[in-house]
Design a protein around this nucleic acid. Structure first.
Length: 823
DNA sequence: CTCAAACGGGG
DNA sequence: GGGTACGTTTGAG
């Protein structure tokens, strides 16, 4: 017998001779790769018999199953097991199957039988079932005993006899970033970057190449070299930015075209595509492919300023440096003319560098989320908050012997989604306009604290065990039993306790030390999951969905924030805005804020805590059409002159560059320069430029993607119309292509005037003023009481937002600005 | 107004 | 194949 200790980072399985073989992939302290093979685990599901069935009936049922020829060999065992269903003990039939692939059909058959009420846990994927049942937590360590096998797949290959969880710190993983450049259908370059290594592969050249560029004979040779390099460098983690949907899709396509085996798995496995709802996921067995875009989009994104999650924007915000500028039309031209290929190679390599750096920044966070939710890096890096919570609950359900509730059917999900909306967080409508010396407070985890404090769980709901209606929900007849801690509150409490422990440990450490950073990520992962618990109750796809619980949490929450706002008002504070768990107080100071904070917290129960987030020099709140300010739409200027923007539907690619620039400049002029005339001048100047047709073509382009072949469109939108014109000009236009177009002068619909970017000769100033610049700029200027009239020489047409602005409000807003500026 | 299609990231 | 199943915006009718 041999023993090997390692950190688990991936799990996969194969089926050989109808038997499942689980592969645990890991890394030792010394950096050796490990493959542990377990041939002793089988898939199963549960069936619940009708309550009125006798033991004999159940036995007869089991007999019938065993004797079914069709399933005779496919079913391993059937046994009675005791499990809890929402806290209540029940007997279930555990049906153990030999081959994971047979499980769905066996379950479908049994489900239809008389005497069977429901089936459970049939959709928990085999490898996930395995790690949960074996107590293996990815990114944690296990000690495996077994016989060593001769196999060159990994440095150590071992046949599992026993597994014991153990402690350990992260080993060093070898990480490699990959990025490709394409022109038309062809891949022209591939960059591979890891610590101390960089390489760009290509198959054509013009001048002297950089030393890290390797020029291959043709595209096929380049792809082969790419595969060879991955095998040679043997990374544990491969990272891309949108590789799931682009880079690996293209690489796979081109390899298929040239009949090249894309066998980059650790054991020579081919690249696999996992179908997820709408996105694919490129899976490399025995390594982990992290598509960092997914993680940014679903986890990090909500805490970023940026509204778009392009590599460029995300890098700028998180790394302080964006992509190298290179227009992709130019790139195509450069490649075709074989000019400036050095520039393309630098661009390609830099994208990989950024991707690698972004991963560096997030990898610990991903690892910690793996440890909390108990799933592998590949999955966790692609999960939404709800999914992370769900997998945590599934694992805890196993540990607490609770049956995992089923996913809702599609119909049920629709029903849940269409249920009438209930009252959410409390919103104190903000005072529109500009405010100074703003103090921001918010509740630390208001909703999770509420869940724990009030024991909000499906099985504690209205449970009258002691006949008393304790713990009543405000403005409701519902209440939650406090007799026994509920399933979900107990898990949340565990997480909160762990987080407090970690935070205590952190206090003993130097801020910024490696250990501190590790702990920071750990407590942050715990915070993310606890904070997602409310959303999970309310999410239509939840297994533990409970509208009543969600409503109750919101209801308790409203009471808490209202109480705080009342306290603030009693202290004569000017509360300018409150939303769900936060409040803004203007004309405040740090000292006053601290005193207020102390008073509030002394009166809050349990883990409930209000926090002081900080001071802002000034802020602007934007009104809606109705004249009152919009909720969740504001910009704040902090003491470092940094502007935080929330809720503005800033710029997506269907807005042109000048619209975006104008909006940014207007905000800056108002908050930083305190100069409304400058703000207006910026807009007027831009409008003049547009009118005078002095705008560069590239600043006017709107981009829209063709999502299907051009002839399948029934609705001819501007981009479709533009694409059709391109075809007339002799261009090829394909599905998936992004069409850049400009709205040209003339009459008729916008679509009929959409010209492909390359062929556009003029533009329609009216369109760009009314549909681009004005809406973007006026969002902000409205807050100061300005209307289109102020920036247009003639009054705007019927579309004017001015009709919504009341004269008195306008006056008040202007006064507010004048006051703001004079200080 | 309602409803279905488009969009995200990548080049 | 252990059929993961997004959530929001926009534009046409």
């Amino acid at each position: 017998m041999n023993k090997v200790d390692f950190c688990v980072f991936d799990i996969s399985y194969v089926v050989e001779d109808n038997l499942p073989i689980v592969k645990i992939w890991g890394k030792t302290k010394a950096g050796k790769s490990v493959l542990a093979i377990d041939r002793d685990f089988y898939p199963y599901f549960y069936a619940e018999a009708d309550e009125n069935m006798s033991t004999a009936d159940v036995e007869a049922l089991k007999m019938r199953l065993r004797e079914l020829k069709e399933f005779g060999e496919k079913i391993k065992t059937i046994e009675n097991v005791n499990k809890k269903y929402l806290g209540k003990e029940k007997v279930f039939l555990k049906v153990v199957v030999t081959n994971p692939r047979d499980l769905p059909s066996i379950k479908d058959t049994i489900k239809e039988w008389k005497g069977i009420r429901r089936t459970y846990e049939y959709d928990i994927m085999f490898y996930r079932r395995y790690i949960i049942d074996k107590g293996i937590i990815p990114m944690k360590w296990i000690s495996v005993e077994g016989e060593k096998e001769k196999d060159s797949t990994a440095d150590i290959v071992i046949d599992v006899k026993s597994i014991i969880p153990m402690k350990g710190i992260y080993p060093k993983f070898k990480t490699m970033a990959i990025d490709i450049e394409t022109v038309d259908e062809e891949i022209i370059m591939i960059s591979l970057v890891s610590k101390g290594f960089r390489k760009v592969l290509t198959h054509s050249w013009d001048e002297k190449a950089m030393n890290y560029v390797e020029i291959l004979e043709n595209e096929a040779e380049m792809l082969k070299r790419f595969i060879e390099l991955i095998r040679e460098r043997n990374p544990d983690i491969i990272v891309t930015y949108n590789g799931d949907m682009f880079d690996f899709v293209k690489i796979n396509e081109r390899c298929f075209h040239y009949k090249i085996d894309l066998n980059i798995g650790r054991g020579g496995e081919k690249l696999e595509f996992r179908k997820r709802t709408r996105r694919m996921a490129a899976r490399i067995i025995g390594r982990t492919h992290i598509d960092i875009y997914n993680f940014v989009y679903s986890i990090i994104g909500s805490s970023l300023q940026s509204e778009t999650f392009t590599l460029d924007m995300v890098s700028k915000e998180l790394l302080g440096a964006g992509k190298k500028p290179l227009d992709w039309k130019k790139l195509s031209k450069m490649w075709k003319e074989k000019k400036g290929l050095n520039k393309i190679s630098r661009y390609c390599e830099w994208d990989s560098q950024l991707t690698l750096k972004l991963l560096d920044l997030m990898i610990n966070q991903i690892f910690e989320l793996c440890k909390v939710s108990g799933q592998i890096v590949f999955d966790v890096s692609r999960m939404s908050y709800s999914q992370l919570v769900e997998w945590l609950l599934i694992r805890k359900a196993y540990e607490k012997n609770e049956i995992v509730l089923n996913r809702p059917t599609y119909i049920e999900m629709t029903r849940r989604r269409e249920a009438s909306p209930y009252l959410g967080g409390y919103v104190l409508e903000p005072e529109p306009g500009i405010h100074k010396n703003i103090a921001l407070f918010d509740f630390a985890s208001l909703y999770p604290s509420t869940i724990i404090t009030h024991n909000i769980s499906p099985e504690t709901l209205d449970s009258k065990s002691n006949g008393k209606n304790e713990n009543r929900v405000p403005d409701s007849d519902h209440f939650f039993s406090i007799e026994k801690t509920g399933f979900i509150p107990s898990i949340m409490e565990e997480l909160v306790k762990k987080r407090i422990e970690i935070k205590q440990q952190m206090q003993k450490l130097a801020v910024g030390s490696p250990k501190y950073k590790d702990l920071y990520s750990r407590q942050y992962a715990l915070k993310l999951l606890t904070n997602a618990s409310y959303g999970y109750y309310a999410y239509s796809g939840s297994r533990w969905y409970s509208r009543i619980c969600a409503m109750a949490i919101a209801s308790f929450g409203r009471r808490y924030i209202k109480n705080v706002i009342d306290t603030a008002k009693k202290n004569n504070f000017k509360v300018i805005y409150g939303d769900t768990d936060s409040l803004f107080i203007s004309e405040c100071s740090k000292q006053k804020a601290q005193v207020f904070l102390k008073e509030v917290n002394e009166n809050l129960p349990g883990t409930m805590e209000l926090e002081f987030e900080g001071m802002y020099k000034s802020g602007i709140f934007v009104p809606t059409k109705t004249g009152t300010a919009a909720k969740k739409r504001y910009a704040l200027l902090d003491n470092k002159d940094h502007i935080t923007i929330r809720g503005f539907e800033v710029v997506r690619r269907d807005w042109c560059k000048i619209a975006k620039d104008t909006q940014e400049q207007v905000l800056s002029a108002i908050l930083k320069d305190k100069d409304k005339d400058k703000a207006i001048a910026i807009v007027m100047e831009m409008i003049d430029k547009v009118k005078g047709e002095k705008i560069k073509k590239e600043d006017l382009v709107l981009y829209t993607q063709l999502t299907k072949p051009i002839n399948e469109y029934e609705q001819i939108g501007p981009h479709v119309a533009a694409a059709k014109k391109s075809i007339e000009y002799g261009q090829t236009v394909k599905e998936g292509q992004i069409i850049g177009y400009i709205i040209s002068k003339g009459t008729g619909s916008i679509s009929s005037r959409a010209e492909p970017y390359d062929y556009a000769e003029d533009y329609d100033p009216e369109y760009y003023i009314n549909n681009q610049i004005l809406p973007a700029a006026m969002r902000i200027l409205h807050a100061l009481g300005f209307t289109e009239e102020d920036v247009l020489s003639e009054p705007p047409g019927q579309k004017s937002l001015d009709t919504f602005m009341k004269k008195s409000l306008k006056k008040r807003l202007r006064e507010s600005f004048e006051k703001f500026r004079s200080d």
